[in-house]
């Protein structure tokens, strides 16, 4: 699904050239759930931006879903972002003036989907992330965890080839974070390919494979034999809370 070879990225600032990526070759297969870890400044976000076609690499090649996207025009990249990629950000990045439903409709707006279909698909996507009764709420009327689920609904509504999430639990408490991971695991079980950046080892252990970056290079590629099950952990957390009462 994702295949990069010798991907490099150099940021040219006024004084120095920052080598954010120095040749990263990774492969993510269809249906995989992969996490990327690494210290701050190791190039995780830079890699995600390249995988998400928000930016062009300085060198190397990148093949997404069978197409080489290293040398596409801006409009073509916009179309790839629209149809093949679903973004989930640390800060949710919802439009505050739109309801949950209309936020989820946005990617379909740019895909040219008809209004009726947009509505039903957005509704279905929100139901899938457990927000069936929050369709007409505005972001400031929802909790952080709920906002992130709206963002996930938005990311999956165009049936993308891959969902890219840069620290999706970074702004959430443990319980909300666990809920988000449960949603991701469920989507993955239904066949979604997911790449997720995190700082927390425990979050990474919910995925099937952990890639570790250091100084712009891939340092480690480890398989998680027995990933944590978010649903079970949620159940335990809730039981504990119930005991205390």
């Amino acid at each position: 699904m994702i295949k990069t070879a010798g991907l490099t990225k150099i940021y040219q600032t006024s004084s120095v050239a920052v080598h954010a990526l120095r040749g990263v070759s990774i492969e993510v297969k269809k249906g995989e759930f992969v996490s990327i870890m690494g210290p701050s400044g190791s190039g995780k976000s830079t890699l995600m931006n390249l995988l998400g076609c928000l930016d062009k690499p300085s060198g190397g090649t990148y093949t997404l879903d069978g197409t080489d996207v290293s040398n596409l025009s801006e409009d073509e990249l916009a179309a790839i972002r629209n149809r093949k990629i679903g973004f989930v950000f640390q800060t949710f990045n919802l439009l505050p003036r739109l309801t949950a439903l209309r936020n989820v409709e946005l990617p379909m707006l740019y895909a040219g989907v008809e209004p009726e279909e947009r509505y039903t698909r957005a509704k279905t996507a929100l139901e899938r992330v457990g927000l069936a009764n929050r369709l007409h709420h505005y972001p400031n009327q929802l909790s952080g965890g709920q906002n992130q689920r709206v963002a996930i609904a938005r990311a999956l509504v165009n049936n993308p080839a891959v969902i890219l999430a840069d620290e999706p639990t970074g702004n959430l408490d443990t319980l909300s974070g666990e809920e988000i991971m449960a949603v991701f695991q469920e989507l993955n079980a239904e066949g979604a390919t997911i790449v997720l950046v995190t700082h927390e080892r425990e979050i990474a252990e919910h995925t099937q494979r952990v890639l570790t970056l250091r100084d712009g290079l891939l340092q480690r590629d480890e398989q998680i034999k027995d990933p944590l099950n978010a649903k079970e952990i949620l159940q335990q957390l809730r039981n504990k809370a119930g005991d205390r009462e």
């Binding site: 998400g52 928000l54 801006e74 409009d75 916009a78 972002r81 629209n82 990045n93 740019y110 938005r154």
Partner: peptide, 16 residues
């Protein structure tokens, strides 16, 4: 600006 960034990430072309 942020709204513009979000729309672009979601697939808005420059002309949109």
């Amino acid at each position: 600006v942020r709204e513009i960034g979000i729309r672009m990430a979601l697939g808005a072309r420059r002309r949109d």
